[in-house]
């Protein structure tokens, strides 16, 4: 992601999120595809228990061969079974819950931290701003995955801990973007004018700066979900993410990859799910950037 942050430069005064954003979004075929995928995944996550006849943790005796090999996709198990004889489709449907929860919670928290740091540093500057931004630089110098793994090892991983770990690693990008934006907005004449009219910091922040930041936060919020989903999958793939038996698309692959040559479906179905969801948020995020933030040409314009 780092490369694109540079694109955020001072541009003309941003409008607030224009009305009809949704309408404009729906007029873009790729964004529609993205929204559709997100819709399907959300539907699957919410209605998982009703969409499948099996329980998420049911280790079925007839789900394994006598030698202990998993079953390929068949009439009973549409996507086959995993190495414990559980229905893979069921695991993937319930895994969608994990991905969405982490995507929304972790990204929400990192958005909150990132925006707070970025706005504080960008508006107040001074020594507070300097310290905050130097700390952000420091965080940027960490190899993100190593940091996340170490954090996951310090705190015993659970769904919420994984979400927090991801948030702690991911807020940095947003802080940088929001900082740059805030700085350029607060240097504008109209902010100076307000200030000379005696407006307090709170008033300037809430009335003038925050509204201008909304579009960029929406855009980065959407793109960030994709990054979060991928990081969760990677941590779970390494075995330091969401704890079994709670399914996550990443830990399904972690548990089954030893069989990957003999039973590739165990890796490719959950892999495809991760890819599709991350892609969907990227497509929507890019379209939103296009609509809300004309200074940054979305790539699909």
């Amino acid at each position: 992601m780092s490369a694109t942050t540079e694109e955020t430069s001072a541009g003309p005064v941003r409008r607030r999120a224009p009305r009809g954003t949704l309408r404009r979004l729906l007029s873009r075929p790729l964004a529609v595809v993205g929204l559709a995928i997100i819709g399907i995944v959300t539907f699957g996550a919410i209605f998982a228990p009703w969409l499948t006849p099996y329980g998420v943790d049911d280790q079925m005796f007839d789900g394994l061969t006598l030698q202990g090999a998993p079953l390929p996709p068949n009439g009973h198990f549409l996507l086959g079974t995993d190495l414990l004889g559980r229905d893979l489709l069921t695991r993937i449907l319930f895994g969608a819950r994990t991905s969405l929860i982490i995507g929304i919670v972790a990204n929400g928290v990192s958005l909150a931290i990132g925006s707070a740091v970025g706005i504080t540093a960008g508006y107040f500057r001074g020594w507070v701003g300097t310290i905050l931004m130097r700390f952000t630089d420091l965080m940027m110098a960490f190899p993100a995955l190593l940091l996340a793994i170490c954090l996951a090892a310090v705190f015993t991983p659970s769904l919420w801990i994984v979400a927090m770990v991801i948030a702690l690693v991911n807020w940095v990008q947003i802080a940088r973007v929001v900082y740059t934006e805030t700085r350029s907005i607060s240097e504008r004449e109209f902010v100076d004018a307000e200030r000379s009219l005696g407006a307090g910091s709170m008033r300037i922040l809430t009335k003038h700066i925050l509204p201008h930041l909304v579009p960029i936060i929406i855009v980065w919020g959407t793109l960030g979900i994709s990054v979060t989903v991928l990081l969760e999958a990677t941590l779970s793939y390494l075995g330091v993410g969401v704890q079994p038996p709670t399914p996550s698309w990443g830990n399904i692959i972690f548990e089954n990859q030893t069989y990957f040559q003999a039973a590739p479906w165990l890796v490719f179905f959950p892999g495809a799910a991760i890819l599709a969801l991350a892609l969907a948020f990227n497509l929507v995020g890019d379209a939103l950037r296009d609509i809300l933030d004309p200074t940054q040409r979305g790539i699909l314009s």
Partner: peptide, 10 residues
């Protein structure tokens, strides 16, 4: 976009 969205282990 697919390249950016694909988890490396997959």
């Amino acid at each position: 976009f697919v390249g950016v969205s694909a988890p490396q282990f997959v």
